[in-house]
């Protein structure tokens, strides 16, 4: 019986597995091989030379690689944190009884459906220093110190604008995940706490937060993984600038391949991104318990 089960299993899974493996492994192996070569598309006369671990050593030694990794993490941490804070307050608000929340929920979900390219374009447009509405709004609020330099030209604010675009797009996702978690919370602990005379704040910290932990985890990890891949909004909004203030690992890999045409080195940087993806995927599996024997 168990043999039969195994046979069936493979039958169901194999096509999909093969599809993923073929399409996944060939490019990864290709990238891996290239990462050991020096290959500049602009200088085909120099040929494709085997250089061993030179690209890797260069990547590890170059402070720019570490700055880029740092920037990537800065982007991920700040945007996920903001999404969590905004998403949580919104989910708690939407969890109260009120007519019309259903429609509100639908509207709030909209940014999640929008292509990141369009999100980038929309934000680039509204923060345009001359004819975008946001800088003028800030000036009217008296926040002239922020808009003294155009938002996308100042390294600090440029990164923040990219984060804002990301927060705009993905807060709905976090909100919905947390809201679903809140709706599924059992009522008994609250009733017991009410009898014990716990305040609203106590109830939140001692009951809601611990019980909601799985939902929070899922939201955080999925967002971390997807924001590590951020590319489209940066491509549209800043192209990595000013200077390299908004250049994340994905974008750096792209720039090396498609603007400097250093294929070997770009492959090395891309494999570092890939390696980070592996680590985070493992962490994710641990968190949702897929690594247990169930």
């Amino acid at each position: 019986m168990s043999e039969r089960k195994n046979f069936n299993h493979i039958q169901y899974i194999l096509p999909s597995l093969l599809f993923i493996l073929v399409i996944f492994l060939i490019p990864i192996i290709y990238t891996l091989v290239i990462s050991f070569f020096s290959w500049n598309l602009l200088r085909p006369d120099l040929g494709i030379k085997f250089v061993g671990f030179k690209n890797y050593l260069q990547a590890l030694k170059d402070p720019f690689t570490w700055e880029t990794i740092g920037r990537t993490f800065y982007f991920v941490i700040i945007s996920v944190l903001l999404e969590l804070i905004f998403g949580f307050s919104l989910a708690l608000s939407l969890n109260t009884e009120f007519k019309g929340w259903k429609i509100v929920q639908s509207i709030i979900l909209i940014p999640f459906m929008i292509a990141p390219v369009v999100v980038g374009f929309a934000w680039k447009f509204i923060v345009n220093n001359d004819y975008g509405p946001l800088p003028h709004f800030l000036i009217n609020l008296g926040l002239t110190s922020i808009t003294e330099n155009p938002l996308l030209a100042n390294p600090t604010t440029a990164m923040f604008m990219i984060i804002m675009a990301d927060v705009w797009e993905y807060t709905p996702f976090v909100t919905l995940v947390l809201l679903a978690g809140l709706k599924a919370l059992p009522q008994e602990p609250y009733e017991a706490a009410y009898v014990d005379g716990a305040s609203a704040i106590q109830r939140f910290f001692y009951i809601t937060l611990p019980l909601l932990r799985p939902s929070i985890m899922v939201a955080v990890v999925i967002r971390t993984l997807t924001s590590l891949r951020v590319f489209d909004t940066i491509f549209i909004m800043t192209g990595g600038g000013p200077g390299s203030a908004t250049e994340t690992l994905s974008f750096y890999g792209y720039r090396l391949a498609f603007q400097s045409y250093q294929m070997g080195y770009s492959s090395t940087i891309n494999l570092i991104s890939f390696f980070l993806a592996i680590i985070f995927t493992l962490i994710y599996m641990k968190l949702i318990g897929w690594d247990s024997n169930e």
Binding site: N129, D130, Y131, E148, N149, P150, L152, A153, P242
Partner: peptide, 15 residues
């Protein structure tokens, strides 16, 4: 214009 410090061709042209 102080904003000119962030201009590329398109922006200068628009101005």
């Amino acid at each position: 214009n102080p904003s000119a410090k962030t201009y590329v061709f398109q922006d200068a042209l628009t101005e």
